[in-house]
Design a protein around this nucleic acid. Structure first.
Length: 474
RNA sequence: GGCGGCAUCGUCUAGCCAGGACCAGGACACAGCCCUCUCAAGGCUGCGACAUGGGUUCAAAUCCCAUUGCCGCUACCA
């Protein structure tokens, strides 16, 4: 089995496209087939090498390595011309001299009268004089295919089932543009047949192209592959995912700190499921379990909340050292580490105690920076609520005293000593823990106080307690 | 306008093909409780859906028809 992913290099890798690529990858790996990459860059105006690089990088990052390619349509012109010549020989195409202006004018008129707006086929039978006249007036021409007037084109889609249309409504569409480039449908059909693609898995915005392409396979006397049309990915507005309703490019997710394995897992469930609605899959497991026949038919809304949950779930399953490694870029950017390849234990410890809270790699720095950096910011609200209270002065003083005289500065000793202080002073644990947390971190939220103190260290803990005492406590 | 496709909790979905065990199951989100020094995480409970109308049948989420809504295509874009 041979499948392909065929994006056009238009600037970024669309997240919906990524899901298509994923399904292709999974399908081919499920059955030991080949996953082929083809870049559809026939629209020269919009294609750039830089855009191609974005696609390749993105796929690699996600672990969707291809077995063949990338093939570039712009470099396969000989193939399309050859195919065109075959059709000319067989008299299955003709030159059309109509200008774009004429065409759009006629289209408009047809629509007004409620007729199908397709090409009326008037250049199919031009006499010699007319052709001469057109040539002399310097008109350009395109090649159109002669579509059958009667009959039906039908195919059995793996996800949608049988889809049939009347060929009568298919007008003679363009194969070669006047700039000498093949159209999408033509290049696509020629390539898919040349690359011996057995299963075409793509978005369902291509269903209506399929009939045209089948006509082309027939005209070319080529074997028709299987088709599987995946429902679209929509934004929260129910429309096609757009920048308005959320991030559409893979890079944006990458930059926010989503794990590739989490993104994959989320994406695979957007349109596919197992009988028992399993949520979390190991990569290998996914390759085994994925089946096109279990894909849904209706469009799905991209739900960022669920992605966030899943990302957190995946992050929690990693060791703190691994998390730190993966977050190295963000840590460095915020000045928490100097060298991406050598992450200090302190940073890993800080991540360890805040691990359960991480949803995105990019938010790690703000979660742990106060445990690592020297200067911290005391949040106004926290100070007011926990430090500007009666009795806090005595409590903090006592805590400093305890810590100074503690044996080993570890969680057990700390807890034992401070709990003992609770008993002694008849104060509830919160009465002591809360001010201490704010005094050493400047915040009301964070890890348990004892692990917090351990990570900060004895020296710094005492300094901060003293500082808070001097500066904030009445 | 024409043609095609789709329709189960707010969202992703299971169930539909082979009608009954479905007063519709799971997951995210939300609410409450438990745990607890805070925030999370985790556990438990709750809230919440078969688009509408007809039919077929002893029995319909499931089969048929119609309606509605949404999406896509209708280009010398891909």
């Amino acid at each position: 089995m041979r499948v392909r992913f065929a994006p056009s290099p238009t600037g970024y890798l669309h997240i919906g496209g990524v899901r298509t690529a994923l399904y292709n990858y999974l399908f081919s790996h499920h059955s030991g087939g080949k996953f082929i990459l083809r870049i559809e860059d026939t629209d020269l105006k919009r294609s750039e090498d830089e855009y191609t690089k974005i696609i390749l990088d993105g796929l690699k990052w996600l672990g969707l390595d291809w077995d063949e390619g990338p093939y570039f349509q712009s470099k396969r012109m000989a193939l399309y011309k050859e195919a065109l010549n075959y059709l000319i020989e067989k008299d299955r195409v003709y030159k059309c001299y109509c200008t774009p202006d004429e065409l759009s004018q006629r289209r408009e008129e047809a629509r007004k009268q409620g007729c199908p707006p397709g090409y009326d086929g008037r250049c199919r039978k031009l006499d010699e004089n007319k052709i001469k006249e057109y040539k002399n007036s310097g008109r350009n021409y395109v090649y159109r295919i002669k579509t059958p007037d009667k009959g039906a084109v039908s195919f059995k889609d793996i996800v949608k089932g049988k889809i049939e249309i009347d060929t009568g409504i298919l007008s003679d569409f363009v194969l070669f543009k006047s700039d000498g480039m093949p159209t999408y449908n033509f290049a696509c059909a020629v390539d898919d047949s040349n690359l011996e693609i057995t299963h075409i898995i793509r978005g369902d915005d291509h269903v209506s192209n399929t009939h045209k392409q089948i006509l082309l396979y027939r005209a070319l006397d080529k074997e028709i592959p299987e088709f599987a049309h995946l429902p679209q990915v929509h934004g929260t507005d129910g429309k096609r995912l757009s920048k308005r309703t959320g991030a559409v490019s893979l890079d944006e997710y990458r930059e926010k700190g989503y794990l590739p394995e989490a993104l994959r897992n989320y994406l695979v469930l957007l349109g596919w499921s197992t009988k028992d609605s399993q949520q979390i899959f190991k990569w290998e497991e996914l390759k085994n379990k994925f089946k096109l026949t279990r894909c849904g038919k209706s469009a799905g809304v991209f739900d960022l909340e669920k992605l966030n949950w899943m990302n957190g779930k995946y992050i929690r399953s990693l060791s703190s050292a691994e998390i730190a490694q993966r977050a190295a870029g963000w840590l460095k950017k915020e000045g928490l580490i100097e060298d991406k390849s050598r992450i200090p234990d302190k940073v890993i410890e800080a991540i360890e105690v805040e691990k359960d809270k991480i949803k995105l790699l990019s938010e790690i720095p703000e979660l742990v920076d106060y445990m690592i950096k020297d200067n911290i910011i005391y949040q106004e609200k926290a100070v007011k609520k926990r430090l500007k209270k009666e009795g806090v002065r005595d409590i903090l003083k006592k805590v400093i005293d305890i810590i100074e005289n503690i044996g080993d500065f570890n969680e057990e000793n700390l807890e034992k000593a401070i709990r003992a202080m609770c008993e002694e002073t008849h104060l509830g644990a919160g009465k002591i823990f809360h001010p201490v947390r704010v005094a050493v971190s400047g915040r009301m939220k964070g890890p348990g106080v004892f692990e917090l103190l351990r990570v900060i260290g004895k020296q710094k803990t005492i300094e901060r307690l003293q500082y808070a005492l001097d500066k904030y406590v009445d």
